[in-house]
Design a protein around this nucleic acid. Structure first.
Lengths: 357, 357
DNA sequence: ATGAAAGCGCTAACAG
DNA sequence: CTGTTAGCGCTTTCAT
């Protein structure tokens, strides 16, 4: 290829450029740039990765050739040769859920300037899909992997371990992370809300939850802790998938219509659900918090904007994303991990939607 | 590499496996799998990409070797050799904004089974960042690119054109797309809402908008169309960044406190802003739609869940994402594009938050 | 400071 | 149906 113009080192740049534009996706190579600049391909490579090792004069010629051709280096070839892809795989359950995307945002923002790019996939909340996705991602030879949660199949864990990469599991904690986990204790947060409800004086409360694994663990812990006290009772409404305003409204409706729910206290597995409960309560003329206390989870923007303001469990998602990025970058830079289990904690933010009985 | 075990075709599989696990990221190759299965490397490649061209017996041996080693093919090498990366670049302004992520979701869901993966980046709403991101993405040699909007720098367009790939611009329309655009007319949607407000009988209205380029074009068109009628007047509140509940509340507050706004009709550039306006209105004891009519944009889930239900401009984002995926896949399959400008349209969904004066 | 040579692990012809 | 031979466009190592 390109033999016809082998002789035009400085003679016919346009010709060389033109030739490399024909055909589909025929892109310019370092060799072509080098020919134009009158240097070898390696020198072009060096000019891009170690400019200090190239003379200023040569550098300028190469830069001119790059500008003239619109050369964009082929990172695929680079990755193959160097065995570093500069790619980080990110797997989250849902790409449309702000809980996860906000962490990804903090994560990628922390990566800015490091040259890493993100290969993102959505796993869904059901098992099984993740395994195939992990294989697909590992085939791209990412330099690191970020997963959501700690619940991964044996085969997934085997593949990830076998890939021998920095791996971070986000948004949950375990004593035996694949590599590093950054999160908080879901059961502990459920128990904390239970104690909060007890302190407010409630004895019969409800939960409105999404059915995913983590929400379930929070809810179970909440029930267990709350019902530790003799005579206390929890009514639980669980929806199959992700929470939404509509499901929040439906949740309160169901509690009132089917469970003869007396106005008291509702712990929701997301702020969205809590907001739905709030809207339904207001539509029914119930006063919050006088007739009904509501606690959300996640402390989204809406918790600070609705009327009344929503009490919610805050998890510092930006800090989570940043800690995850740091854990990976530290390893990628060759450092050792000092701490494989990073507990970001949580905090109950009391606002207007709750008050003592 | 691997010379030491060259002689163990069937003798010491564990040895081969073990050897390939040592060292960082040392992954198994097709050659190693082939050695284990007693076939050449190419046959392993074929077994994976064209199993029908390999005898069932060989196939089984190869499968066993793959299972034994946990082999994951190196897609980087595959991409370099085949000049097809099976990667699609996706650039959206914000990864945490459901408007964009819902389209990406529809887009990727349409891609399921095709073997393509998504390289996702966030461009932000400011110019400049996109150019560097496009270069970074093109260096990965994606097979196609999806961009948001039609507003791209000359250099960006040049790079994209030079890459000679299927490209789709989403969420807007232009007569001169880089390749294909799938969207709707933002100005036309603004004018439609203006006519809607006029029909309802309003003469003095307001807008509460985010400051991004598309929201601005919708708002400008709204104002122009509405003020075509003698004596009509629009008060505009614009916020710098993305809309939010808090900004919606602040918007109404500003209108009332600073602009002496009389209860009438407010067109918001997103449902989030509209919801914020609604919350603030309710907090102030205003009745919607009796005292104040509100129109949102986007028809998010919340528009169908708040009380009163929110009138909004619906754009079929799933259809948009699907059409974009189809436009790209058609070209990737070698087909020609019949239609370079795909208008998905929009629709004003009238609900409880508006009524005739 | 620059270049030559040798791969990275695959796919794409072409043989048999 | 299977194998051989050439690359893909870079990075790495070793010379010069």
């Amino acid at each position: 290829m390109g033999k016809k113009v082998d002789n035009n080192t400085e003679i016919s740049p346009k010709g060389a450029l033109f030739e490399s534009r024909k055909g589909a996706g025929q892109s310019i190579t370092m060799e072509a740039v080098g020919r134009l600049a009158g240097v070898s391909q390696v020198t072009v490579s060096r000019a891009l990765s170690n400019p200090e090792k190239v003379s200023p004069k040569t550098l300028k010629k190469i830069q001119a050739a790059i500008d003239a051709t619109g050369f964009v280096p082929n990172a695929v070839a680079g990755a193959l040769a160097s065995k570093r892809s500069k790619l980080i795989s990110v797997l989250i359950p849902s790409i449309t859920n702000i809980v996860y995307t906000s962490m990804v945002k903090a994560f990628t923002d922390s990566l800015a300037g490091s040259g890493y790019q993100i290969l993102l996939s959505e796993t869904g909340f059901e098992d099984g899909a993740e395994e195939a996705l992990i294989a697909a991602h590992l085939s791209r030879r990412p330099d690191a992997v970020m997963l959501t949660g700690i619940d991964h199949s044996a085969r997934s864990r085997m593949m990830l371990l076998g890939a021998n990469l920095p791996i971070v599991e986000l948004w949950d904690l375990t004593d035996s992370p694949i590599d590093v986990c950054v999160g908080f204790s879901h059961p502990e947060s459920g128990r904390a809300v239970a104690r909060f409800a007890i302190e407010l004086g409630f004895t019969s409360v409800a939960t409105v939850s999404a059915g995913d694994e983590r929400a379930t663990r929070r809810g179970d812990a909440f029930v267990q802790e709350f019902e530790k006290i003799e005579g206390n009772k929890v009514t639980s409404i669980v929806f199959g998938q992700t929470g939404s305003l509509a499901k929040g409204r439906a949740g309160l409706t169901k509690l009132i219509d089917e469970h003869d729910f007396k106005n008291s206290f509702i712990f929701c597995s997301s702020d969205n659900l809590a907001h739905g409960v709030l809207i339904e309560a207001q539509a029914r003329g119930l006063k919050v918090p006088e007739d009904l206390a509501i606690v959300g989870f996640g402390d989204q923007e809406l918790a600070r904007s609705v009327d009344p303001l929503l009490t919610s469990v805050r998890v510092d998602r930006p800090a989570l994303g940043q800690a995850a990025a740091k854990a990976l970058l530290d390893q990628l830079k060759g450092g050792k991990v000092s701490n494989r289990i990073i507990d970001i904690g949580f905090e109950i933010i009391q606002r207007e939607s709750t008050k003592p009985l």
